[in-house]
Design a binder for these strands. Structure first.
Lengths: 334, 334
DNA sequence: GTGAAAGCGCTAACAT
DNA sequence: ATGTTAGCGCTTTCAC
């Protein structure tokens, strides 16, 4: 490892001067600057960010804390974050937590001890404590996707109530009145919100809410498969169903295929998220699309602004709108 | 930020003693140890990894350099890496390069300047230089998925020649003789290898290779869509096709659906990778499954062994076998 | 325009 | 069993 010392020695200057050159500071003659730059190149010198981080108390590193990078929702978000971060001189450490409180705590401690300058996180609903600790220290944080209520931190998310509302409303406007719902994990705000939107739409159109048609999923494909089977056992089946995410909808597809029930003729389905698969299954899944890349990008933008202390609304809530993607899994009755 | 100084002052001991306690070193009385641990807890002291990294010349951080985390192949690999890393006290910084040489170079420089202890990477085929630089310094590296030839670094990958061979052989054994191939990006070793496996199988079974039936894709869904359309314009179409990855196969599905060509009755398809979608499309796609999570896990294991200087074959090539997943997209003619 | 010196928070000889 | 000291590679005052 060649250090600033080595460069200074070779150039016959003090390390201060070399430091000035690599940081592009004034007060160094054009002549020496060029000479030092040449030597830097020759020796292949690269400043040590760790040493720099120690003195500057800034690592130019962001933490990303998510439930699971292999959940199809997150890779694109992560990409949006990394792209924006990279373009602004930051890199990102990612941690998977599987929504476990203990893992979340460990990950936050790890990131803090690594002195990341800020954290983008998607916490499980129950974990208010950790976020409050960060808040107390006024540590830069941006929440994504899931919001822990009553804590004053920026959040970038989809308006999930509205999104659930839009999905359900589309079913209603297509002529359906018997509409079921498979919820997401109702330990998450996201899951609760989509459910709330579902109820809101039914109420608005004076359709009675049938609790038997509200089935408790957990965002996993298996839970979609499981819950639709339970639904089908009921005496009076619905004609349409809003499923809180596409992954569960896919599970549903499999169960229906097994039972030889035709989508959308016998059951209309609308999903949520517009993951890759949605445009590929047969019939193509009507769903709501989340601007995932943008979500990540914006989260990184807000966090970095906060870190660099540029003006940005202190506790901005950025609510991105989801987009209805009409495909072939909903039958229009009118 | 509370530092080791603060703890030492409060405990009326030297920072050395505190250091001994937090690192669980001997030579400190049970009594003081307990007292200091109590104070550490009270003050919420967390050691500063950056300072530690500076003196120890070890950051317990891994770099992960991949083309694109939102490419469905990588999230699971990344998860395997992060899990193993975490369980062994490491965290991971990830970088997307889009297979661009310039981005790869920038990312490696960034990771080096951040003093990561090792790098797991999947480089574009043309980028031998950067890897050679690392090799010269004997820097810990593990390649995943794609191998740059002639460089003595550990690699964890699928045997893609064998995998292409297995895919093609399965088509042959199903009774097909007119077998086409849509290649992956032939700038990558992976793409070349699967093609080679395809040819090898044909040769072994004395089937003449028809260059017209070898179509040049680039691993993107669009290229699958595009190339199958070109294939269909030919006078004498094949009865089966091996497509170098599932994403392209999905593009193919769309084109065939448009043209109302039935899979597998009119054209049999075998893909590669077994991404989520494969088990969901209609008909379900027969494909070869890569142990992605294991791939990541093993790569991390080898890299960390190397870093910790535990014995592990210096230049081990870990060739994981892909697994044939028989579904419904190949028609058995015999 | 350039350099000497202090210090970021920690670990590791080397005393005592 | 505990403390003193030096130093990891860098930036930043302050002096010249």
């Amino acid at each position: 490892m060649v250090t600033i010392q080595d460069v200074a020695r070779k150039a016959n200057v003090s390390i201060t001067t070399v430091s000035r050159v690599i940081n592009d500071k004034p007060d160094v003659s054009k002549e020496t600057k060029e000479r030092i730059n040449k030597i830097i190149k020759e020796m292949g010198y690269k400043p040590n960010s760790v040493a720099r981080g120690l003195v500057l108390r800034k690592t130019n590193t962001l933490g990303l804390l998510i439930p699971d990078i292999s959940n199809p929702f997150f890779p694109e978000v992560a990409r949006g974050i990394e792209d924006f971060a990279k373009n602004n001189g930051f890199s990102v450490i990612f941690c998977n937590t599987d929504n476990k409180k203990s893992e979340e705590k460990k990950a936050i401690n790890l990131l803090r001890s690594k002195q990341v300058d800020g954290i983008i996180l998607s916490l499980s609903f129950k974990n208010k404590e950790e976020l409050e600790k960060l808040r107390k220290e006024n540590f830069p944080v941006v929440q994504i996707d899931r919001e822990i209520p009553d804590i004053n931190y920026p959040i970038v998310k989809i308006d999930n109530i509205k999104s659930g509302y839009k999905a359900t409303r589309y079913l209603i406007e297509s002529g359906h009145t018997k509409i079921a719902h498979i919820t997401g994990n109702t330990d998450t705000k996201t899951g609760q919100d989509r459910l709330e939107g579902y109820k809101k739409a039914l109420e608005e159109f004076d359709i009675e809410i049938n609790e038997k048609w509200i089935l408790k999923g957990d965002y996993s494909k298996d839970s979609g498969y499981r819950e639709i089977k339970r639904l089908l056992k009921q005496d009076e089946p619905p004609t349409a169903i809003f499923i809180a995410n596409d992954l569960m909808a896919i599970g549903t597809y499999e169960a229906l295929m097994e039972k030889n029930i035709k989508i959308p003729d016998e059951l209309s389905i609308i999903g949520h998220d517009d993951i890759d698969i949605a445009s590929i299954v047969n019939p193509k899944l009507t769903t709501l699309s989340q601007p995932k890349y943008k979500l990540g990008q914006l989260a990184a933008k807000i966090l970095i602004s906060r870190i660099e202390k540029q003006k940005f609304p202190e506790n901005c809530k950025s609510i991105l709108e989801s987009e209805l993607i009409i495909r072939n899994s909903v039958k229009r009755l009118k």
